[in-house]
Design a protein around this nucleic acid. Sequence first.
DNA 1: CTCCTGTCCTGCCGGC
DNA 2: TGCCGGCAGGACAGGA
Length: 281
Amino acid sequence: MPELPEVETVRRGLAPVLENRILKTITVRRRDLRFPVPAQLAKRLTGVRVTALERRAKYILIRFSDGHVAILHLGMSGRIKIFPQGHEITQEPHDHIVMTTDHNDSVVFNDPRRFGSLLLTSDNALADHKLLKGLGPEPLDAAFDAKLLASRLKGRHTPIKAALLDQRTVAGLGNIYVCESLFRAGISPRRQARTVQGGRAVKLHQAIQEVLREAIAAGGSTLRDHRQPDGELGYFQHHFAVYGRAGEACPDCHCHSEKSSGIKHIVQSGRSTFYCARKQR
DNA sequence: CTCCTGTCCTGCCGGC
DNA sequence: TGCCGGCAGGACAGGA
């Protein structure tokens, strides 16, 4: 589920609840997530103050005053629920981790498919952590420009769709926002990555940043289960130009007519791709 | 190295 | 109505 905009939305919802708070209780109901939740996690973090919530790619980093850093990934179906102090905590299936702060707010990590993970490291080991080490640039950082994107795509003999899904190229894009970015840039998902240089790289860079910024502003996209931590729905899904719209006409286009059948749905490296063959080359 | 496929897990939806 | 196959927003591990 969650790509960069959804993860950023979760981070923003979580920050006011956790920052500068001491974790009073941490309950791990299921440890067998994508990676086992460290057995000592609760013991290490209980009674420690949270100093900051950050995001790197699709990871949420929870920093603690003693140098610990918790690395949270929501996988495909992970969700964060917040129960403000005084509200009844309703339990649901797949509530794997529950924590409560010294303000009596509760934070619940729910993940039916258990592709998510919660790991623990320390500030000085963070940069070298195996999950973070190979990640490409943050797409919304100033350091990420068209030139850097082009250099990351140079020489790559894989479709641009696959290259952008690869977190080592740019970190944080997933299936939806890759499709949407390629549409906006007018680039076919089947185009060889190495041919996205010069003007095409400029357009793609701009499209990626626009799509991500707009999606964050909309609180992310809600397909099945993404909600903001306060329960509000994200609404960027209403702005999808191509994702999930096979057979429809794409915006301002005559791709759906007697002679063409609208937005195409193909499968690339095992994932659905949606695009307009008329606008994307 | 790079690239591609299989795999983990549960829930839901459409078709028969 | 009920069952079953296929598919889902991710990304690692391992093979070619």
